[in-house]
Amino acid sequence: MSDISRLGIVGCGLMGSGIAEVAALRGLDVTVAESTPELAAAGRERVTASLDRGLRRGKFGAAERDQALTRLSFTHDLGDLADRQIVIEAVAENREMKLDVFRQLDKVVTDPEAILATNTSSIPVVDLAVATGRPAQVVGLHFFNPVPVQKLVEVIPALTTAADTVNRARAFAAGQLGKEVIQAPDRSGFVVNALLVPYLLAAIRMVESGAARPEDIDSGMKLGCAHPMGPLRLLDLIGLDTAQAVADSMYDEFKEPLYAAPPLLQRMVAAGHLGRKSGRGFYAYEA
């Protein structure tokens, strides 16, 4: 099984930029596609800033940082991903947006054996696979935020995914990117979010009912259960809009009340209180 050398990424937000950074540091040629020149430029700045932080913190040297930057290119034309051996979709957690990306990738990626992967948190992989003419090459590769720090990747085969695609995806994530891999079922939420999301929503309901303050809930889970971060701080880090999108997807599939987004979460998202990225969520943050 030959190594992958050419990676494409669609989307350069928190997840896409993190995947790009890790891959470039590990020696891959990385092309990142965004929807506009402005977003492509912002993506370049995001990756460069993260590499500079890593350099200041002593995670790698200046030569490694500079070499990683030479392996990165940014574009607003999906056609520039035509020669990629694997493309990872990392756009917003929106079903129609992701479906559109996969339909376009199916047309532009020339290698019929190229892997088309999704970084979705909750959308069934098979829905994206059957939007293409190559469902056997579509697989889930779910990274965790922040990608340069978090070691886990969930590999999610759809019913249509070929065994060779699964093996190549596992080898890519583990052998080339240095991640720890678990295989997850193609059910909304997979393994981690199926366990995590009900816990996070339960914390919101405690705040909503007045049972406890955010500070007390977070301190309780950190000090009482040895969690590195309380659930409400974690929600602010994830982004409340992302958390609602994941919860909605899981509720749509299972119709279980524990997956339903609480009214407080819906109201906070409507108000633009999305957590760290907006400066305000369950806590306030400096710009």
Rank of each mutant, 00 (worst) to 15 (best):
R26H: 12
Q104L: 03
R26I: 04
G140H: 06
S17P: 05
A169K: 07
D111K: 00
A117P: 02
L159M: 09
Y285H: 11
R53T: 15
A23C: 14
R71K: 11
L39A: 12
G210E: 13
N167K: 13
E45C: 05
A287I: 11
I182R: 14
L116C: 12
V166K: 14
M250S: 12
L39D: 07
L25P: 10
A158C: 06
G230D: 08
E215S: 05
V47N: 02
R84Y: 00
D216Y: 10
E154P: 11
A131L: 06
N119K: 14
E113L: 08
L72N: 04
T242I: 08
F144T: 07
R213M: 08
G275P: 05
D111R: 00
I88C: 03
K59C: 03
L201E: 00
A243C: 03
A33W: 02
R57Q: 15
A114L: 01
G175K: 14
V192T: 13
I19D: 09
F102A: 08
S188W: 05
L116P: 10
T160P: 00
G61N: 10
G189E: 12
S278E: 11
Y251R: 05
A92Y: 14
G224R: 05
G224D: 14
V30I: 05
H227N: 14
I123L: 06
V101H: 07
C12T: 13
I86K: 00
V192L: 06
S121T: 08
A226H: 14
M15C: 10
P231W: 03
R95M: 13
A62P: 05
F143V: 11
R103F: 03
T118F: 01
A49W: 09
A49F: 08
L78W: 02
P124C: 08
G178R: 09
H227M: 13
K98T: 07
G58P: 03
P228T: 09
E253T: 10
E89W: 12
Q176W: 02
D83Q: 03
G27W: 04
E96D: 15
P263A: 09
P37L: 06
L141I: 10
I4T: 15
L105S: 06
D164E: 15
L51G: 09
G133A: 07
K107W: 00
D186T: 09
V197N: 06
E208Q: 15
P135A: 02
T110D: 05
A287V: 10
E38T: 09
P228Q: 11
G224P: 06
L78G: 09
A90D: 09
V91W: 04
N145W: 02
Y285Q: 06
M221R: 06
D83F: 00
A158M: 01
F143C: 02
L39Y: 10
H227T: 08
Y199G: 02
I9K: 09
N145H: 00
V166Y: 01
G279C: 15
I217K: 01
A260G: 00
M268F: 06
A63L: 12
L237S: 04
A68C: 08
H76T: 07
R56T: 07
V22G: 10
M206S: 14
S122G: 11
S249R: 09
K222W: 04
R65N: 11
S209Y: 02
T110K: 14
S50K: 14
S219N: 12
A173S: 13
E89Q: 13
L69A: 09
A184P: 07
L265P: 04
D186R: 07
